[in-house]
Each structure stands twice: as C-alpha cells, then as structure tokens.
C-alpha cells in the first residue's frame, strides 16, 4: 500500500512538472520537450541521488544530522565552480566538470583524513574532516570571489545555491547512466548497513565486513552527491529530510529504505522544482528554498505523529 502511494506520488510529481510551467505553451512544443521534460527527469534523478546518499550516510556515520553535503562535497564543488569561472574556462561543460572535480578532490581529502587511524575508517573523524575540508574550501572560494576582478564571480554563488536551470537531455543521459552504479553498490550494502546501525562491534560479530562496507558506502554515497552537485549545485534539505521521512514510514531496513528514499527524494525535488518555476512566474524561486518550505513542515508533522504514537 505505502509503495503504491509512493510510486503514485512520484508519477504525479513527474507529470505535474511536465504539464505545468511558467509559460502557457502547447504540450507538443519544443519548449516542453527540450526544456521542461529533461528538467523534470533531472530533478527526479538528482533528488533521488540526494535521498539515497543521505540515507546511507546517516547510517554510516550513525548521526541523524548527516546529509550528503556534510562531508565537504559542497565546499569542494563550489571551489571548483568558482575556479572555472575565475580562470575563464570556457566550453559548455566547464562548470559542471570543474564542480565535479572539486567535489571528488574534497571526497579524496576527507577519505584520507577518515583513514587516519590506520586502515579503519572512523566515522567521527570522517565527520570532522568533512566539516573542516568544507570550511576551508569555502574560505578559499570566498577569498577568490572577493579578490578577483570578474564581476560575474558574484553570480557563481547563485549557482552554488542550487537550481536545475542547466537541465538538458545531455545532462539527463549522463546522470542517468552514472547514478545507477553507486546506487547498486549502496543497495548491495543494505544488509551490512542494517547491522552497522547496531554499532560496529555487534555488526562485526554478526558477520559484516565492517571496514569494507564503510569504505564502499562512503565512496558510493559521495559519488552520488558529487554528480548531483555538478549538475544542480547544492540543493539542501532533500538529503536530510527525505531519509528521515522514509525511515519513519519504512523502518530501518535499508533494502526498503534506500529505494524509498530514492523515490521520495526524486518526487520531492520534481515537485519543488515545479513550484519554484510556477508560483511566482515569470520569476523563479531558488529550488532549495522550496525544498525547505515543503520538506520541513512535512518532517515536523511526521516527527510529531511518530513521537505521539
């Protein structure tokens, strides 16, 4: 029943984002096919990636506050994007590629810091390392923006705040081919992730290869986030709130939780982007504002029901 509802909600969100737009144009027009449809699909894929990534990172670091950007990826991606603009790297894919490279650099750096205690990945060090790397990258970014001459750099922050306006079928194909790989890795780790929730020692006794699982989950979740941030900047709240909502409804079994967080994240972002494009048309709201405005009240409501029950 709840799966039927979730799938129905996803389909409704996708249909709405193709049918509704700021401009009244016929549905068979170029605008709907080349702008609205790829944007709807990209919103779904990015939201899904953030939802699944957030759910697995929360399990990995055993911290309910974890979200896909906590581990320094947003700072790295922002630095990459600002560098691309400051160095006048041209070409249509310069910005997303630079952001992706920045996110990967942050990922590698945080991973190395997390491995500080020998071969074992320490979630606490991972968290602190992520915050430190993120803060450092943000500081370098701000220094570049305030020192560089290019006035357009100020606009780089707008990109960083997130949005799906660069959606095209090219981006959909790239993200669509890329995301299933880390997603499958996460799905493959769902049983050990369940065990990890009990703590590392118990998980080890129950037969999980804890170190391998932690490394795999960290890398897969971060690679998902890196792709999302490269095509759409930092879209907040989806990766934090959706996993919690999914956990309240689907429980702690990751085999159900991860697909639910993926579908829920995708549906939420598709819906949020539709609202961002339409409610103040012809103007547009930053989509991160809308995800927070929808996500947080829903979350509060569920939290209340859950604690009362």
């Amino acid at each position: 029943m709840k799966w039927t509802l979730l799938i129905a909600a996803t389909l409704v969100a996708l249909a709405a984002s193709v049918l509704l737009g700021p401009a009244a144009v016929p549905l068979n027009s170029d605008i709907v096919w080349n702008l609205r449809a790829p944007r709807a699909v990209l919103a779904f894929l990015v939201g899904g990636a953030l939802g699944a990534s957030g759910a697995s990172l929360q399990a990995l670091v055993r911290n309910p506050l974890a979200d896909p950007f906590l581990l320094g990826l947003s700072g790295g991606a922002g630095l990459g994007a600002v560098l691309a603009i400051a160095l006048h790297l041209s070409g249509p894919w310069a910005l997303p590629l630079a952001a992706f490279a920045g996110a990967i650099a942050a990922l590698v750096l945080v991973y190395r810091m997390g491995m500080i205690g020998g071969g074992a990945l320490d979630p606490r060090v991972l968290l602190l390392g992520g915050v430190a790397v993120g803060a450092f990258a943000a500081a370098v970014t701000t220094a570049i923006v305030s020192l560089a001459d290019a006035a357009e750099l100020r606009n780089a922050f707008l990109w960083l705040w997130g949005g799906l306006s660069s959606a095209s079928w090219d981006a959909v194909v790239i993200v669509g081919v890329y995301t299933p790989i880390p997603l499958l890795v996460l799905m493959g780790a769902s049983r050990p992730l369940d065990l990890l929730a009990l703590g590392e020692e118990p998980a080890r006794y129950l037969g999980a290869d804890v170190e391998r699982v932690k490394r795999r989950v960290y890398l897969a979740a971060s690679l998902l986030t890196a792709a999302a941030v490269a095509v759409s900047g930092v879209i907040g709240f989806v990766g934090l709130v959706v996993p919690h909502i999914s956990r309240l409804t689907w429980g702690h079994r990751h085999r159900a939780l991860l697909p639910a967080a993926f579908l829920g994240g995708g549906a939420l972002l598709a819906l949020a982007d539709t609202l961002a494009r339409t409610v103040v048309a012809p103007r547009e709201l930053p989509v991160g504002v809308v995800t927070a405005l929808i996500g947080v009240p829903v979350f509060a409501l569920l939290l209340r029901r859950w604690t009362v029950a």
Binding site: P22, A23, A24, V25, L35, R277, P282, R283, L285, P286
Partner: peptide, 20 residues
C-alpha cells in the same frame, strides 16, 4: 520582453525566455 518584471533584475526559468 520582461517589462512585466518590476524589479531591476530577476531570476527566471529558461522556458519563460524561450516562450517569450
């Protein structure tokens, strides 16, 4: 084509630019 936007500048959807 955006003279209905009173502000000096504004974020819009690409599709609005295309449609206008």
């Amino acid at each position: 084509v955006f003279d209905d936007v009173a502000a000096p500048s504004a974020q819009v959807s690409l599709e609005t630019i295309a449609a206008r």
